[in-house]
Design a binder for these strands. Structure first.
Lengths: 247, 247
DNA sequence: CAGTGGTCTAGACCACCGA
DNA sequence: CGGTGGTCTAGACCACTGC
Protein backbone atom coordinates (compact mmCIF):
# COMPACT_ATOMS: atom_id res chain seq x y z
CA UNK A 1 0.00 0.00 0.00
CA UNK A 2 2.50 2.58 1.17
CA UNK A 3 6.18 2.29 0.36
CA UNK A 4 8.31 3.15 3.38
CA UNK A 5 11.49 2.90 1.35
CA UNK A 6 10.33 5.44 -1.19
CA UNK A 7 11.69 8.96 -0.61
CA UNK A 8 8.18 10.43 -0.83
CA UNK A 9 6.91 11.16 2.69
CA UNK A 10 4.40 8.71 4.04
CA UNK A 11 1.76 11.36 4.58
CA UNK A 12 1.98 12.48 0.96
CA UNK A 13 1.68 8.90 -0.28
CA UNK A 14 -1.34 8.50 1.95
CA UNK A 15 -2.82 11.76 0.71
CA UNK A 16 -2.36 10.72 -2.90
CA UNK A 17 -3.91 7.33 -2.29
CA UNK A 18 -6.93 8.90 -0.62
CA UNK A 19 -7.36 11.28 -3.56
CA UNK A 20 -7.13 8.32 -5.90
CA UNK A 21 -9.80 6.46 -3.98
CA UNK A 22 -11.95 9.55 -3.86
CA UNK A 23 -11.77 9.92 -7.63
CA UNK A 24 -12.52 6.24 -8.04
CA UNK A 25 -15.75 6.95 -6.24
CA UNK A 26 -14.89 4.57 -3.44
CA UNK A 27 -16.39 6.85 -0.81
CA UNK A 28 -19.81 7.86 -1.99
CA UNK A 29 -20.83 9.84 1.04
CA UNK A 30 -19.10 8.71 4.21
CA UNK A 31 -15.36 8.91 4.66
CA UNK A 32 -13.16 6.89 7.02
CA UNK A 33 -12.22 8.54 10.31
CA UNK A 34 -8.69 9.12 11.50
CA UNK A 35 -8.40 6.01 13.65
CA UNK A 36 -9.77 3.86 10.85
CA UNK A 37 -7.08 5.16 8.53
CA UNK A 38 -4.46 4.50 11.21
CA UNK A 39 -5.49 0.86 11.22
CA UNK A 40 -5.88 0.34 7.48
CA UNK A 41 -2.66 2.08 6.50
CA UNK A 42 -0.62 1.08 9.58
CA UNK A 43 0.70 4.57 10.20
CA UNK A 44 0.54 6.84 13.20
CA UNK A 45 -2.31 9.22 13.73
CA UNK A 46 -0.01 12.17 13.27
CA UNK A 47 0.75 10.98 9.75
CA UNK A 48 -2.91 10.49 9.03
CA UNK A 49 -3.74 13.97 10.25
CA UNK A 50 -1.02 15.53 8.13
CA UNK A 51 -2.40 13.77 5.07
CA UNK A 52 -5.96 14.77 5.93
CA UNK A 53 -5.10 18.39 6.60
CA UNK A 54 -4.75 19.18 2.92
CA UNK A 55 -7.85 17.26 1.92
CA UNK A 56 -9.83 19.20 4.49
CA UNK A 57 -8.34 22.54 3.55
CA UNK A 58 -9.16 21.80 -0.06
CA UNK A 59 -12.70 21.11 1.00
CA UNK A 60 -12.66 17.58 -0.39
CA UNK A 61 -13.52 16.07 2.97
CA UNK A 62 -15.74 17.57 5.63
CA UNK A 63 -14.94 16.51 9.18
CA UNK A 64 -16.28 17.85 12.45
CA UNK A 65 -15.56 16.66 15.94
CA UNK A 66 -18.09 14.10 16.98
CA UNK A 67 -19.76 13.77 13.61
CA UNK A 68 -19.27 11.13 10.97
CA UNK A 69 -16.76 12.44 8.40
CA UNK A 70 -18.20 12.94 4.94
CA UNK A 71 -17.09 13.52 1.43
CA UNK A 72 -17.79 17.17 0.77
CA UNK A 73 -19.79 17.17 -2.39
CA UNK A 74 -20.14 20.89 -2.57
CA UNK A 75 -21.97 21.09 -5.84
CA UNK A 76 -19.45 23.56 -7.08
CA UNK A 77 -15.96 23.82 -8.44
CA UNK A 78 -13.62 26.16 -6.63
CA UNK A 79 -11.12 27.88 -8.88
CA UNK A 80 -8.02 29.39 -7.26
CA UNK A 81 -6.90 32.43 -9.19
CA UNK A 82 -3.24 31.82 -8.49
CA UNK A 83 -2.10 29.69 -11.36
CA UNK A 84 -2.63 29.49 -15.07
CA UNK A 85 -5.50 27.18 -14.48
CA UNK A 86 -7.25 24.70 -16.64
CA UNK A 87 -10.91 24.09 -16.04
CA UNK A 88 -10.26 20.46 -16.85
CA UNK A 89 -7.68 20.15 -14.08
CA UNK A 90 -9.73 21.94 -11.46
CA UNK A 91 -12.74 19.78 -12.05
CA UNK A 92 -10.70 16.59 -11.90
CA UNK A 93 -8.99 17.84 -8.75
CA UNK A 94 -12.31 17.78 -6.93
CA UNK A 95 -12.67 14.11 -7.65
CA UNK A 96 -15.34 14.62 -10.28
CA UNK A 97 -15.26 13.23 -13.77
CA UNK A 98 -14.91 15.90 -16.42
CA UNK A 99 -16.21 15.37 -19.89
CA UNK A 100 -16.94 17.61 -22.83
CA UNK A 101 -19.41 17.59 -25.67
CA UNK A 102 -17.67 19.05 -28.68
CA UNK A 103 -20.21 21.22 -30.49
CA UNK A 104 -17.91 22.92 -32.97
CA UNK A 105 -14.39 22.15 -34.14
CA UNK A 106 -13.37 23.79 -37.37
CA UNK A 107 -11.25 26.48 -38.96
CA UNK A 108 -12.85 29.80 -39.81
CA UNK A 109 -12.11 33.48 -39.92
CA UNK A 110 -13.65 35.93 -37.50
CA UNK A 111 -12.73 39.58 -37.66
CA UNK A 112 -13.89 40.41 -34.13
CA UNK A 113 -11.90 37.63 -32.52
CA UNK A 114 -8.87 38.21 -34.74
CA UNK A 115 -8.86 41.79 -33.56
CA UNK A 116 -8.57 40.62 -29.95
CA UNK A 117 -5.59 38.51 -30.94
CA UNK A 118 -3.92 41.37 -32.81
CA UNK A 119 -4.32 39.50 -36.08
CA UNK A 120 -5.64 40.42 -39.51
CA UNK A 121 -9.37 39.99 -39.81
CA UNK A 122 -9.06 37.31 -42.45
CA UNK A 123 -6.60 35.15 -40.50
CA UNK A 124 -7.90 31.60 -40.25
CA UNK A 125 -8.64 30.54 -36.68
CA UNK A 126 -9.24 27.15 -35.17
CA UNK A 127 -12.49 27.35 -33.29
CA UNK A 128 -13.52 24.90 -30.59
CA UNK A 129 -16.82 25.07 -28.77
CA UNK A 130 -17.54 22.66 -25.98
CA UNK A 131 -20.23 22.06 -23.44
CA UNK A 132 -18.30 21.03 -20.39
CA UNK A 133 -19.71 18.72 -17.78
CA UNK A 134 -18.69 17.64 -14.34
CA UNK A 135 -20.13 14.28 -13.39
CA UNK A 136 -22.44 14.52 -16.41
CA UNK A 137 -23.95 17.75 -15.16
CA UNK A 138 -23.40 20.80 -17.39
CA UNK A 139 -20.91 23.24 -15.93
CA UNK A 140 -19.87 25.65 -18.64
CA UNK A 141 -20.00 26.65 -22.27
CA UNK A 142 -16.47 27.10 -23.50
CA UNK A 143 -15.51 28.75 -26.80
CA UNK A 144 -11.90 29.14 -27.78
CA UNK A 145 -10.16 30.50 -30.86
CA UNK A 146 -6.50 29.94 -31.74
CA UNK A 147 -4.54 30.93 -34.84
CA UNK A 148 -4.77 28.07 -37.31
CA UNK A 149 -1.11 28.56 -38.13
CA UNK A 150 -0.35 27.26 -34.67
CA UNK A 151 -3.32 25.13 -33.77
CA UNK A 152 -4.20 23.38 -37.03
CA UNK A 153 -2.74 20.07 -35.76
CA UNK A 154 -5.55 20.01 -33.19
CA UNK A 155 -8.28 19.66 -35.81
CA UNK A 156 -8.61 15.93 -35.40
CA UNK A 157 -7.99 15.77 -31.68
CA UNK A 158 -10.52 14.24 -29.33
CA UNK A 159 -11.48 16.87 -26.77
CA UNK A 160 -14.18 14.91 -25.03
CA UNK A 161 -11.92 13.90 -22.19
CA UNK A 162 -8.76 15.98 -22.47
CA UNK A 163 -7.49 19.41 -21.66
CA UNK A 164 -6.90 21.80 -24.53
CA UNK A 165 -3.66 22.98 -23.01
CA UNK A 166 -2.35 19.44 -22.71
CA UNK A 167 -3.11 18.69 -26.36
CA UNK A 168 -1.70 22.03 -27.44
CA UNK A 169 1.57 21.42 -25.64
CA UNK A 170 1.70 17.82 -26.84
CA UNK A 171 1.05 18.40 -30.52
CA UNK A 172 2.55 21.82 -31.13
CA UNK A 173 4.95 22.42 -28.25
CA UNK A 174 3.19 25.69 -27.47
CA UNK A 175 2.70 26.51 -23.83
CA UNK A 176 0.93 29.57 -22.50
CA UNK A 177 3.10 31.70 -20.27
CA UNK A 178 0.87 34.71 -19.84
CA UNK A 179 -2.81 35.36 -19.69
CA UNK A 180 -5.24 38.05 -18.71
CA UNK A 181 -8.84 37.55 -17.81
CA UNK A 182 -11.95 39.61 -17.38
CA UNK A 183 -14.59 38.20 -15.09
CA UNK A 184 -18.13 39.50 -15.16
CA UNK A 185 -21.48 38.46 -13.77
CA UNK A 186 -24.22 37.99 -16.33
CA UNK A 187 -27.62 36.44 -16.67
CA UNK A 188 -27.61 33.70 -19.29
CA UNK A 189 -29.86 33.89 -22.33
CA UNK A 190 -32.66 31.40 -22.67
CA UNK A 191 -30.64 29.27 -25.06
CA UNK A 192 -27.61 29.28 -22.79
CA UNK A 193 -29.71 28.41 -19.78
CA UNK A 194 -31.27 25.53 -21.64
CA UNK A 195 -27.89 24.24 -22.72
CA UNK A 196 -26.50 24.49 -19.20
CA UNK A 197 -29.71 23.06 -17.76
CA UNK A 198 -29.53 25.55 -14.94
CA UNK A 199 -32.44 26.91 -12.92
CA UNK A 200 -34.07 30.16 -13.92
CA UNK A 201 -32.69 32.08 -10.97
CA UNK A 202 -29.06 31.23 -11.69
CA UNK A 203 -26.47 33.79 -12.72
CA UNK A 204 -23.30 32.98 -14.62
CA UNK A 205 -19.72 34.11 -14.65
CA UNK A 206 -18.62 35.33 -18.05
CA UNK A 207 -14.87 34.94 -18.35
CA UNK A 208 -12.85 36.27 -21.24
CA UNK A 209 -9.26 35.15 -21.43
CA UNK A 210 -6.47 36.17 -23.72
CA UNK A 211 -3.52 33.83 -23.55
CA UNK A 212 -0.02 34.43 -24.83
CA UNK A 213 3.02 32.33 -25.52
CA UNK A 214 6.44 33.91 -25.88
CA UNK A 215 4.88 37.32 -26.30
CA UNK A 216 2.48 36.31 -29.05
CA UNK A 217 -1.27 36.08 -28.47
CA UNK A 218 -2.36 32.51 -29.15
CA UNK A 219 -5.71 32.13 -27.45
CA UNK A 220 -8.94 34.02 -27.16
CA UNK A 221 -11.44 32.32 -24.97
CA UNK A 222 -14.87 32.90 -23.63
CA UNK A 223 -16.27 30.73 -20.91
CA UNK A 224 -19.74 30.98 -19.47
CA UNK A 225 -19.84 29.15 -16.15
CA UNK A 226 -22.82 28.31 -14.02
CA UNK A 227 -22.75 30.56 -10.98
CA UNK A 228 -24.29 27.90 -8.76
CA UNK A 229 -21.49 25.44 -9.40
CA UNK A 230 -18.40 27.56 -9.65
CA UNK A 231 -16.47 29.90 -7.40
CA UNK A 232 -13.34 31.85 -8.14
CA UNK A 233 -10.99 32.33 -5.22
CA UNK A 234 -8.05 34.65 -4.78
CA UNK A 235 -5.37 34.92 -2.11
CA UNK A 236 -3.28 37.93 -1.29
CA UNK A 237 -0.31 38.41 0.93
CA UNK A 238 1.89 41.42 1.37
CA UNK A 239 4.92 39.38 2.23
CA UNK A 240 7.47 38.81 -0.44
CA UNK A 241 8.58 35.34 -1.31
CA UNK A 242 5.25 34.00 -0.15
CA UNK A 243 5.20 30.28 -0.72
CA UNK A 244 1.98 28.73 -1.76
CA UNK A 245 1.10 25.51 -0.07
CA UNK A 246 1.90 22.45 -2.12
CA UNK A 247 -1.27 20.70 -3.33
CA UNK B 1 3.89 32.86 30.21
CA UNK B 2 1.34 30.35 28.95
CA UNK B 3 -1.78 29.51 30.90
CA UNK B 4 -2.49 25.81 30.80
CA UNK B 5 -5.79 26.26 32.59
CA UNK B 6 -7.10 28.71 30.01
CA UNK B 7 -9.42 27.17 27.42
CA UNK B 8 -7.39 28.71 24.59
CA UNK B 9 -5.15 26.04 23.09
CA UNK B 10 -1.51 26.22 24.05
CA UNK B 11 -0.33 26.56 20.46
CA UNK B 12 -2.64 29.52 19.90
CA UNK B 13 -1.37 31.22 23.06
CA UNK B 14 2.16 30.58 21.89
CA UNK B 15 1.38 31.94 18.44
CA UNK B 16 -0.13 35.09 19.93
CA UNK B 17 2.83 35.61 22.22
CA UNK B 18 5.25 35.24 19.34
CA UNK B 19 3.25 37.77 17.32
CA UNK B 20 3.34 40.12 20.29
CA UNK B 21 7.11 39.81 20.60
CA UNK B 22 7.50 40.22 16.85
CA UNK B 23 5.53 43.46 16.97
CA UNK B 24 7.52 44.61 19.96
CA UNK B 25 10.59 44.30 17.77
CA UNK B 26 12.14 41.73 20.03
CA UNK B 27 13.49 39.76 17.09
CA UNK B 28 15.24 42.17 14.82
CA UNK B 29 16.55 39.68 12.32
CA UNK B 30 17.07 36.24 13.80
CA UNK B 31 14.23 34.18 15.19
CA UNK B 32 14.42 31.37 17.74
CA UNK B 33 14.42 27.83 16.38
CA UNK B 34 11.92 25.16 17.30
CA UNK B 35 13.99 23.50 20.00
CA UNK B 36 14.76 26.85 21.58
CA UNK B 37 11.05 27.59 21.80
CA UNK B 38 10.45 24.15 23.28
CA UNK B 39 12.85 25.05 26.08
CA UNK B 40 11.71 28.61 26.72
CA UNK B 41 7.98 27.87 26.67
CA UNK B 42 8.19 24.36 28.16
CA UNK B 43 5.92 22.81 25.58
CA UNK B 44 6.40 19.93 23.20
CA UNK B 45 7.88 20.41 19.78
CA UNK B 46 4.58 19.46 18.19
CA UNK B 47 2.91 22.40 19.92
CA UNK B 48 5.69 24.70 18.80
CA UNK B 49 5.39 23.56 15.21
CA UNK B 50 1.63 24.04 15.22
CA UNK B 51 2.11 27.59 16.47
CA UNK B 52 4.83 28.27 13.94
CA UNK B 53 2.88 26.85 11.01
CA UNK B 54 0.69 29.92 10.67
CA UNK B 55 3.56 32.36 11.13
CA UNK B 56 5.44 30.61 8.36
CA UNK B 57 2.48 30.35 6.03
CA UNK B 58 1.82 34.03 6.53
CA UNK B 59 5.43 34.70 5.70
CA UNK B 60 6.11 36.42 9.02
CA UNK B 61 8.95 34.03 9.73
CA UNK B 62 11.24 32.46 7.19
CA UNK B 63 12.65 29.08 8.16
CA UNK B 64 14.59 26.60 6.11
CA UNK B 65 16.08 23.31 7.15
CA UNK B 66 19.65 23.81 8.21
CA UNK B 67 19.61 27.60 8.12
CA UNK B 68 19.15 30.04 10.92
CA UNK B 69 15.48 31.08 11.06
CA UNK B 70 14.84 34.73 10.28
CA UNK B 71 12.16 37.33 10.59
CA UNK B 72 10.74 37.90 7.13
CA UNK B 73 10.94 41.55 6.36
CA UNK B 74 7.57 42.34 4.93
CA UNK B 75 7.98 45.06 2.38
CA UNK B 76 7.29 47.94 4.72
CA UNK B 77 5.15 49.80 2.19
CA UNK B 78 1.44 50.26 1.87
CA UNK B 79 -1.25 47.66 2.00
CA UNK B 80 -1.92 46.55 -1.55
CA UNK B 81 -4.99 44.75 -0.38
CA UNK B 82 -7.49 47.14 -1.84
CA UNK B 83 -7.08 45.65 -5.28
CA UNK B 84 -10.79 45.21 -5.45
CA UNK B 85 -11.92 48.11 -3.34
CA UNK B 86 -9.50 50.61 -4.69
CA UNK B 87 -11.59 49.79 -7.69
CA UNK B 88 -13.92 52.31 -6.14
CA UNK B 89 -11.08 54.73 -5.69
CA UNK B 90 -10.06 54.21 -9.29
CA UNK B 91 -13.53 55.24 -10.23
CA UNK B 92 -12.62 58.62 -8.84
CA UNK B 93 -9.45 58.51 -10.89
CA UNK B 94 -11.59 58.26 -13.99
CA UNK B 95 -13.33 61.46 -13.02
CA UNK B 96 -16.32 60.08 -11.21
CA UNK B 97 -17.18 60.83 -7.62
CA UNK B 98 -17.39 57.96 -5.21
CA UNK B 99 -19.56 58.26 -2.12
CA UNK B 100 -21.16 55.97 0.41
CA UNK B 101 -24.45 55.95 2.22
CA UNK B 102 -23.89 54.47 5.65
CA UNK B 103 -26.88 52.32 6.41
CA UNK B 104 -25.67 50.56 9.53
CA UNK B 105 -22.81 51.31 11.89
CA UNK B 106 -23.06 49.62 15.25
CA UNK B 107 -21.68 46.88 17.46
CA UNK B 108 -23.48 43.59 17.61
CA UNK B 109 -22.88 39.89 17.99
CA UNK B 110 -23.42 37.47 15.13
CA UNK B 111 -22.63 33.82 15.59
CA UNK B 112 -22.42 33.03 11.90
CA UNK B 113 -19.97 35.83 11.14
CA UNK B 114 -17.96 35.18 14.29
CA UNK B 115 -17.53 31.62 13.16
CA UNK B 116 -15.95 32.80 9.92
CA UNK B 117 -13.51 34.86 11.97
CA UNK B 118 -12.65 31.98 14.31
CA UNK B 119 -14.21 33.87 17.20
CA UNK B 120 -16.71 32.94 19.89
CA UNK B 121 -20.29 33.38 18.80
CA UNK B 122 -20.96 36.04 21.39
CA UNK B 123 -17.93 38.17 20.49
CA UNK B 124 -19.04 41.76 19.84
CA UNK B 125 -18.42 42.82 16.26
CA UNK B 126 -18.41 46.23 14.67
CA UNK B 127 -20.76 46.10 11.72
CA UNK B 128 -20.72 48.57 8.85
CA UNK B 129 -23.11 48.45 5.96
CA UNK B 130 -22.79 50.90 3.11
CA UNK B 131 -24.40 51.53 -0.20
CA UNK B 132 -21.58 52.63 -2.45
CA UNK B 133 -22.16 54.98 -5.35
CA UNK B 134 -20.24 56.43 -8.24
CA UNK B 135 -21.59 59.73 -9.50
CA UNK B 136 -24.66 59.11 -7.34
CA UNK B 137 -25.39 55.88 -9.15
CA UNK B 138 -25.43 52.79 -6.90
CA UNK B 139 -22.58 50.37 -7.47
CA UNK B 140 -22.45 47.95 -4.60
CA UNK B 141 -23.78 46.93 -1.23
CA UNK B 142 -20.89 46.49 1.13
CA UNK B 143 -21.18 44.81 4.51
CA UNK B 144 -18.18 44.35 6.77
CA UNK B 145 -17.71 42.95 10.26
CA UNK B 146 -14.62 43.44 12.44
CA UNK B 147 -13.95 42.40 16.04
CA UNK B 148 -15.06 45.26 18.28
CA UNK B 149 -11.96 44.71 20.39
CA UNK B 150 -9.98 46.06 17.47
CA UNK B 151 -12.43 48.22 15.57
CA UNK B 152 -14.44 49.93 18.31
CA UNK B 153 -12.59 53.25 17.70
CA UNK B 154 -14.26 53.37 14.29
CA UNK B 155 -17.75 53.71 15.75
CA UNK B 156 -17.92 57.47 15.29
CA UNK B 157 -15.99 57.66 12.02
CA UNK B 158 -17.50 59.19 8.94
CA UNK B 159 -17.48 56.60 6.18
CA UNK B 160 -19.39 58.58 3.60
CA UNK B 161 -16.25 59.56 1.73
CA UNK B 162 -13.38 57.58 3.22
CA UNK B 163 -11.87 54.15 2.91
CA UNK B 164 -12.37 51.72 5.74
CA UNK B 165 -8.80 50.52 5.55
CA UNK B 166 -7.46 54.05 5.79
CA UNK B 167 -9.51 54.76 8.92
CA UNK B 168 -8.59 51.38 10.39
CA UNK B 169 -4.89 51.99 9.92
CA UNK B 170 -5.16 55.56 11.14
CA UNK B 171 -7.15 54.95 14.33
CA UNK B 172 -5.99 51.48 15.37
CA UNK B 173 -2.71 50.89 13.58
CA UNK B 174 -4.07 47.65 12.18
CA UNK B 175 -3.18 46.89 8.58
CA UNK B 176 -4.36 43.86 6.70
CA UNK B 177 -1.54 41.78 5.35
CA UNK B 178 -3.44 38.82 3.98
CA UNK B 179 -6.83 38.10 2.56
CA UNK B 180 -8.72 35.47 0.70
CA UNK B 181 -11.75 36.03 -1.46
CA UNK B 182 -14.48 33.98 -3.03
CA UNK B 183 -16.16 35.42 -6.08
CA UNK B 184 -19.48 34.10 -7.30
CA UNK B 185 -22.16 35.14 -9.71
CA UNK B 186 -25.63 35.60 -8.23
CA UNK B 187 -28.95 37.13 -9.08
CA UNK B 188 -29.84 39.87 -6.60
CA UNK B 189 -32.99 39.66 -4.51
CA UNK B 190 -35.75 42.12 -5.16
CA UNK B 191 -34.69 44.25 -2.22
CA UNK B 192 -31.08 44.29 -3.37
CA UNK B 193 -32.04 45.15 -6.90
CA UNK B 194 -34.17 48.00 -5.66
CA UNK B 195 -31.37 49.31 -3.51
CA UNK B 196 -28.87 49.09 -6.35
CA UNK B 197 -31.46 50.49 -8.77
CA UNK B 198 -30.30 48.03 -11.39
CA UNK B 199 -32.33 46.60 -14.26
CA UNK B 200 -34.18 43.33 -13.84
CA UNK B 201 -31.86 41.40 -16.11
CA UNK B 202 -28.70 42.28 -14.23
CA UNK B 203 -26.55 39.77 -12.39
CA UNK B 204 -24.18 40.64 -9.55
CA UNK B 205 -20.79 39.58 -8.31
CA UNK B 206 -20.97 38.30 -4.77
CA UNK B 207 -17.60 38.63 -3.12
CA UNK B 208 -16.77 37.25 0.30
CA UNK B 209 -13.50 38.35 1.79
CA UNK B 210 -11.69 37.29 4.90
CA UNK B 211 -8.89 39.64 5.87
CA UNK B 212 -6.10 38.94 8.31
CA UNK B 213 -3.50 40.95 10.13
CA UNK B 214 -0.43 39.26 11.55
CA UNK B 215 -2.05 35.87 11.20
CA UNK B 216 -5.29 36.75 12.97
CA UNK B 217 -8.60 37.20 11.17
CA UNK B 218 -9.85 40.77 11.55
CA UNK B 219 -12.34 41.27 8.74
CA UNK B 220 -15.24 39.45 7.23
CA UNK B 221 -16.75 41.22 4.30
CA UNK B 222 -19.46 40.68 1.78
CA UNK B 223 -19.79 42.90 -1.25
CA UNK B 224 -22.53 42.66 -3.82
CA UNK B 225 -21.45 44.48 -6.97
CA UNK B 226 -23.58 45.32 -9.97
CA UNK B 227 -22.50 43.04 -12.78
CA UNK B 228 -23.39 45.54 -15.47
CA UNK B 229 -20.92 48.11 -14.24
CA UNK B 230 -17.93 46.17 -12.99
CA UNK B 231 -15.43 43.67 -14.20
CA UNK B 232 -12.79 41.86 -12.20
CA UNK B 233 -9.58 41.27 -14.07
CA UNK B 234 -6.71 38.93 -13.42
CA UNK B 235 -3.25 38.75 -14.91
CA UNK B 236 -1.00 35.76 -14.93
CA UNK B 237 2.62 35.39 -15.86
CA UNK B 238 4.75 32.37 -15.25
CA UNK B 239 7.39 34.65 -13.80
CA UNK B 240 5.21 36.80 -11.60
CA UNK B 241 2.14 34.72 -10.82
CA UNK B 242 -1.30 36.14 -10.73
CA UNK B 243 -2.18 39.68 -9.84
CA UNK B 244 -5.64 41.06 -9.81
CA UNK B 245 -6.32 44.64 -10.62
CA UNK B 246 -9.46 46.66 -11.01
CA UNK B 247 -10.64 48.11 -14.29
C1' DC C 1 -22.52 5.45 25.22
C1' DA C 2 -18.92 4.79 21.41
C1' DG C 3 -16.72 7.27 17.97
C1' DT C 4 -15.22 11.59 16.26
C1' DG C 5 -11.61 15.22 15.76
C1' DG C 6 -8.56 18.66 18.73
C1' DT C 7 -4.82 18.96 21.58
C1' DC C 8 -0.48 17.59 23.79
C1' DT C 9 3.59 14.86 25.26
C1' DA C 10 8.19 12.52 24.80
C1' DG C 11 10.58 10.40 22.40
C1' DA C 12 13.20 9.18 17.56
C1' DC C 13 15.76 9.31 12.95
C1' DC C 14 16.77 11.86 8.98
C1' DA C 15 18.41 15.49 5.28
C1' DC C 16 20.13 19.66 5.00
C1' DC C 17 23.07 23.80 5.93
C1' DG C 18 26.80 26.64 7.65
C1' DA C 19 30.92 27.09 10.21
C1' DC D 1 30.46 19.04 13.25
C1' DG D 2 26.12 21.08 15.73
C1' DG D 3 21.84 23.05 14.79
C1' DT D 4 18.03 23.40 11.73
C1' DG D 5 13.47 21.85 10.13
C1' DG D 6 10.87 17.44 8.12
C1' DT D 7 9.04 13.25 9.26
C1' DC D 8 7.18 9.56 12.18
C1' DT D 9 5.81 6.80 16.28
C1' DA D 10 3.00 5.50 20.44
C1' DG D 11 0.95 6.87 23.57
C1' DA D 12 -2.68 10.23 26.29
C1' DC D 13 -6.78 13.22 27.70
C1' DC D 14 -10.42 16.02 26.23
C1' DA D 15 -14.94 18.14 24.02
C1' DC D 16 -18.16 17.20 21.10
C1' DT D 17 -21.76 14.52 18.41
C1' DG D 18 -25.28 11.18 17.58
C1' DC D 19 -27.52 7.13 19.02
Amino acid sequence: MLDRTHPTPLWRQLQNDLIRRLRAGEFTDTFPGELTLVDTYRVSRHTVRQALRHLREEGLVAATRGRQPRVAHTAEVVQPLDTLYSLFASVEATGRTQTSQVRVLDIRADGVIADQLDLEGSTPLLHLERLRLADDEPLAIDRVWLPAAIAAPLLDADFSRTSLYAVLADRTGTRLDHSSENIRAVIPTGAERALLRCPADTACLSIHRRGESAGRPVEWRHTLVRGDRYTVTAEFSVTEGYQRRPI
